[in-house]
Nucleic acid binder design. Sequence first.
DNA 1: CCACGGATTGGCT
DNA 2: GCCAATCCGTGGA
Length: 204
Amino acid sequence: MEHSFQKNILPKSFYTQSVLTVAENLLGKIFVRKITNSIISAKIVEVEAYDGSIDEAAHTYRGKTQRNKLMFEEGGILYVYFIYGNHYCANVVTGNKNEGKAVLIRAAEPIEGIDRMAINRFGRKCLNRKEYINLTNGPGKFCKSFGINKSHGGVDLLSENIFILNNDKLPKDKIIKTTRIGITRSKEFNWRFYIKDNPFVSKP
DNA sequence: CCACGGATTGGCT
DNA sequence: GCCAATCCGTGGA
């Protein structure tokens, strides 16, 4: 089974595509984190693209800084940032080195390790469906359930313990493309993608 | 050096 | 629906 995993891990060439292509194609893929003796995995159901070359909402819009430098690396690693004094958000870096483009993982549907996610998020197992939905229906919540923090910035997505598995391509009519959430600038870009009718999407 | 605001969340009206 | 919490990075009021 170690082997079937290996075959399905998204290759470097997936991540070096354009940020919008990666964003749309990440929908339905399986984000996996292996922790000692356990696996946490979830299907990606909502993402947003950020492109520092034309996008004022991107952290990379004003050039390279200490904080955003990982987002300027070649595609295929994580860029994790801390926001509002409380939350981490995980991004998949895309494209070539020095482009400053990434895809924010906004929501996912738990598959494996649900009790472990609940411990990470609430300190105990889920008590009801509301809590189950609340595990991963937002970018900060996803990171909390997966135990992702600043220390995971720069992690290679082709590594042993964190990677994304391929999955069947979603039919076009299941993909909704709309404006991004929570930003004040460059609001007009339709760079948010989510899976239609999926209960884990953060907002309709 | 320091003031300001943020790719969010959760609790309260 | 509205708003406070909370703190770090950024840029210059």
